[in-house]
């Protein structure tokens, strides 16, 4: 199964990197994770509970971080086992700074599933993965927001204002105008 996704955040790469490397914060924002424990330099033990349609399982196993290039890239190797089958995934994560001081977090990888998980869940899994990804990005956004709140006011002022947000307001205004003409 292919895993792919990306999202732009109003922050620099380092801020995202810091959250992703913080075990507690990562555990808090990743959906389904009930325990995440650092057991080595770049090795973690994770326990998660996931329910996918009719398939429900408690997973546990190791996560490894390899090929780290702070703050722009790392590869996550995941080996999770459960009674309903095992998942074996390798995902490359990139954090690239894009225009206006924003950063794009993207990932691309592959998961190999086995057992009941493969047999009864595969078709719905893609949908589930994208919904979990959205939850993760929302969690990350929230985490970034909470950091921003604690940053001194003058620093925020120096931050570039998101053009995306401005565009959104502009688009909304245009739509409102169009609406007026239609009625």
């Amino acid at each position: 199964m292919n895993l792919k996704g990306k999202q732009t955040f109003q922050t620099d790469a380092q801020a995202i990197w810091n959250i992703l490397m913080d075990t507690n914060k990562l555990a808090a924002i990743t959906p389904g994770i009930s325990k995440l424990e650092r057991i080595g330099e770049d090795q973690f033990n994770a326990t998660s509970d996931i329910k996918i349609g009719p398939v429900k399982g408690s997973f546990s196993g190791d996560l490894f971080l390899v090929d780290k290039k702070e703050p722009h890239a790392f590869t996550l190797k995941i080996k999770q086992e459960s009674k309903i089958g095992n998942a074996d995934a390798t995902v490359r994560i990139l954090i690239n700074e894009v225009e206006d001081g924003n950063s794009e977090l993207s990932f691309d990888g592959n998961a190999k599933l086995s057992g009941t998980l493969a047999r009864t869940g595969q078709r719905v899994l893609t949908g589930v993965a994208s919904s979990l990804t959205k939850q993760f990005f929302r969690g990350l956004e929230k985490e970034l927001d909470s950091i921003r709140e604690t940053i001194p006011l003058e620093e925020i002022k120096e931050k570039p204002v998101s053009t995306k947000k401005r565009q959104n307001i502009f688009v909304q205004f245009l739509n409102w105008l169009k609406g007026l003409f239609k009625s």
């Binding site: 349609g53 009719p54 190999k112 057992g115 493969a118 047999r119 009864t120 078709r123 719905v124």
Partner: peptide, 14 residues
């Protein structure tokens, strides 16, 4: 079957 030999539609859901 997928390329790993997993039957991926082994239920009446699929």
């Amino acid at each position: 079957y997928d390329e790993n030999g997993q039957l991926i539609n082994g239920s009446y859901m699929d």
